[in-house]
Design a protein around this nucleic acid. Structure first.
Lengths: 107, 107
DNA sequence: CAGGATCCAGTGCGATACTG
DNA sequence: CAGTATCGCACTGGATCCTG
């Protein structure tokens, strides 16, 4: 355990840390919760999170995809259209995140 | 949701984010896991985490105490002796953290 | 519309030294 | 032994601009 960022390549072989790091970005919970309600597109996420920069949203979205929580469906059209949705693993994660919320309520 | 640090005073009224932020320090999981095994002192944590700076350990311990996950018992003696242990809320959090670990194993 | 590239500020944490 | 103070760097994420 100890140390957790993805820039310095590192195994991070503790599953608990992997999981916590995976959801530790500033907008990741917001994104996951939104997708938990249903498929949506980047522009939707931008609308729901007006405070977030596009840069942060796309980057964190990308990490969540990499980590297997989110599926990306790219319709090859112009203007671009891309849809994001939770994978089964993502839904499982949301279950645990809700449990975390219960603890958070007692803080 | 969105934004999470404790320096910029901010309600952070989303319980899920409160919880995630509370365990998002570099050594917090390590500390919690260690205490989950039993009461221990700062120097023990230093021994178990040789890579961690004392600064980080004491700071994150302090936050975990503030957040109600850890109890601090200060024997008023010299040389100093202080013991840390999980509170009931801390144990509850460890339950959820273990669930997070299950998800982490599938990543 | 999706999403890179750049530039810049804020902050997390390591190293080290010091005190009661 | 517990805890604080200082310095310094690396990383996160905001603002803005650009392209297919």
């Amino acid at each position: 355990m100890g140390s957790y960022n993805r820039k310095t390549p590192q195994k991070n072989d503790c599953p608990m840390e992997r999981a916590v790091n995976a959801i530790s970005g500033k907008w990741k919970l917001a994104i996951l919760c939104e997708l938990n309600r249903g498929t949506c597109r980047l522009k939707d996420l931008e609308e729901y999170n007006p405070e977030a920069s596009k840069r942060a949203l796309t980057q964190q979205l990308g990490e969540l995809v990499e980590d297997g929580f989110i599926a990306k469906k790219d319709f090859d059209v112009y203007p671009k259209k891309v849809e994001y949705s939770l994978t089964p693993l993502g839904k499982e994660m949301m279950g645990v995140v809700n449990a975390l919320g219960k603890v958070g309520e007692k803080m």
